[in-house]
Simulated assay, not measured.
Amino acid sequence: MHQRRPEEPPSTPPPPRGTIGSTRPPSAVRIGDFVYLVGAYQRVRDMRSAGTAAHRVLIFARRAPWVMREARTTGPSACSDHSPCSDGASSLSPHHARSFAMRFRKIHGAGNDFILLSNLGLDYDNDWSKEAERLCARRTGVGADGLVISRLINDSPAVLEVACFNADSSVATMCGNALRCSAWAAHRDHGFQQMSLRMAGVVHEAVVSDESVWVTAEVGAVLPRRLQAVINGRPTWFDSAHTGTEHVVAIVDDVDAIDAVMVGRLVRHHIDLAPLGTNVNFVQSTGQQALKLRTYERGVEAETLSCGSGAVAAVVVATMRGLVARRAVTVHNRAGEPLTVRPHDARPNRTHWVGGPVTHTFEGVLA
């Protein structure tokens, strides 16, 4: 069992050259700033909303994303993301990658495919964002929607730390299918049937059964009529739903009649959603407690065959709009491998389960 180190030592060392230390709230931190964590200043590579204006998910190059909920010791950077610090300030405590072959799994959750590394020690680190861009390339790499790093933190009870890096090198603060694939691998490797998965500071429950793998998704702000766009000549409203990451959802008559890539890309970069952007979902009611979904995913910058957090967002919005009742809903996708979304028994208003198949495609070794 690994004990968690305290986040703050008794005294704070001076900030690195190029910074001026001060205490600031999450809303004041910017990309390129330094935040003091676990005994060292960490440079913020990117950030995401944490579902509330008061919190931020901070993303670093060489450690897991972290949710900043209160004021911390920080310092602005004298370097830019386009001009890295020559004195090493951009990576203050680097863990140099070791030269050895890494085994990986190619795995997909209902068509959403990943390169999964799950046998790394806690002390092994790398610039996974850069690796994700290289490995996920469809023509020159292994090819995938994302790279998933899963580490066992504790085995009784079972706890894993999961990080997901999108194909464009950005960090996913929530990816339901990546969590489901990680839970499947933990069941295969360690025999766990129930476990906790921690992604970007949020703990998700996971249950593995014979036919499906289930994980929880936390539902944040739901805003009706967030923005409007013209689709096939018709003005269409998009509602927004935060399911661990940003989503907008449009209810349409026929999802197959929509150019999901063209419309999705326009809405994803809509000025009303700047600077974070969003995932874009098109949803059609296909019968009692059934939906059909297409998703343009931010970070992949393309339509994916399935999206777990998008399925949850679709069900939340469809429930708000009266298209489905507050019970299990089947969400059909482009892969033809439906996901099921249902409210959590103990927390039905803020937590949903999303479950479905996971397929292990092949294994390999990264040179």
Rank of each mutant, 00 (worst) to 15 (best):
A172Q: 05
L135G: 06
R342V: 06
V324G: 03
I258T: 06
T236E: 08
D239I: 07
N154H: 11
R350A: 14
V324E: 00
N177S: 03
P357T: 14
E218P: 07
T140K: 07
C175W: 11
I153C: 14
C164N: 12
L135M: 04
P94Y: 01
P275R: 08
A241S: 13
G336A: 09
C307Q: 05
A132T: 04
D46M: 09
G244Q: 10
L323H: 11
T304Q: 03
L135T: 06
R321N: 02
S22K: 15
R4A: 12
A221D: 15
S212M: 09
D125K: 09
Q289D: 10
G287F: 09
R326M: 08
D123F: 05
P15D: 15
R63M: 15
P6C: 02
A183E: 10
Q288P: 12
I107F: 00
D239R: 00
A314N: 02
Y41C: 03
G355D: 15
A325H: 06
M102D: 09
F238Y: 13
N333M: 05
N119I: 02
G88I: 07
A302I: 00
A302K: 09
D272S: 05
P10N: 14
Q193G: 13
P357R: 00
E363K: 03
R45P: 00
D46K: 06
H360D: 15
H82W: 14
E303S: 04
A185E: 08
V317Q: 01
G244Y: 12
V35T: 10
A40T: 09
R134C: 08
V248P: 13
S150K: 02
G111W: 11
Q228T: 05
H344A: 11
A172H: 06
Q289F: 03
E7G: 01
S77V: 07
N281L: 11
V57D: 14
P65H: 00
E297F: 05
N279W: 05
V213L: 04
P13T: 10
T243M: 05
V267Q: 09
K130S: 14
T173F: 01
F282L: 08
R138C: 02
V230K: 11
E218R: 15
E70A: 13
G88R: 07
V207L: 06
P76L: 14
E161Q: 12
W214G: 11
V208S: 06
A318G: 04
G233H: 03
T23G: 02
A313D: 08
F192V: 00
V365H: 04
E363G: 01
A274M: 04
W184I: 00
H270M: 02
W237F: 05
R151I: 02
M195E: 14
S49C: 05
D259Y: 00
L147T: 11
M199F: 06
V207T: 10
M1Y: 01
V316N: 01
M102L: 14
T243C: 12
D189L: 07
E131I: 00
I153W: 08
C79F: 15
V203T: 14
T236A: 03
V261M: 07
E7I: 01
F362P: 00
D272W: 04
R225Y: 12
I59S: 06
A290S: 12
F192G: 11
A61T: 09
F104L: 03
R69C: 08
V316T: 11
G32A: 13
F282C: 05
L339C: 07
L92A: 13
S196N: 14
